[in-house]
């Protein structure tokens, strides 16, 4: 059943697909409460389905050895609590691109445009992925606020 959750190039899941994925993960967790992958998939599906409050509740009971600080911070960001999101991001020991990406968005929400600009400049310099165009658009938005 987990194979259905496997992403493929032509698969563009809807919120409904993620609702189904949550159900599959719940089934798997009922069979094996220690299934860390099912738990991880459930958290991702909850975020993608927009169930941010429920997701934070789930993460409070994270018994697994999984680093889900990014997902936790993202939920707080979407629930319009950028300060809490920032607090979680500040606690990340080895931040990756995704953490800095979210930090930039949190700084934008906090209207800290100069810091936001610096984070985007660093991400754009150091990253080479399929989101370069979106980042440059975001950087333009930040620059417009600085002008």
């Amino acid at each position: 059943e987990l194979a259905a959750l496997r992403p493929s190039a032509d698969f563009d899941p809807t919120a409904d697909d993620y609702e189904k994925a949550i159900k599959v993960c719940n089934k798997l967790l009922n069979l094996d409460a220690h299934d860390a992958t099912a738990y991880h998939c459930k958290i991702v599906a909850m975020v993608q389905a927009g169930k941010f409050q429920d997701c934070i509740k789930q993460l409070e009971n994270n018994k697994f050895d999984l680093d889900l600080q990014f997902e936790d911070a993202y939920c707080h960001y979407r629930l319009n609590d950028p300060l809490k999101a920032m607090k979680i991001l500040d606690g990340v020991i080895n931040p990756q691109v995704k953490h800095n990406e979210l930090r930039a968005q949190v700084l934008y929400r906090l209207e800290q445009y100069e810091n936001c600009f610096t984070v985007y400049r660093d991400i754009i310099r150091s990253s080479d992925d399929k989101y370069e165009t979106e980042r440059k658009t975001n950087l333009s938005a930040v620059t417009a606020q600085l002008a």
Partner: peptide, 21 residues
């Protein structure tokens, strides 16, 4: 309001399931 993408959402990704399949 200027266009601003939620790129962080794209980083919320399913874990690798290869070891499970």
């Amino acid at each position: 309001k200027p266009l601003f993408y939620d790129v962080a959402l794209y980083h919320v990704e399913m874990p690798s399931l290869d070891h499970k399949l």
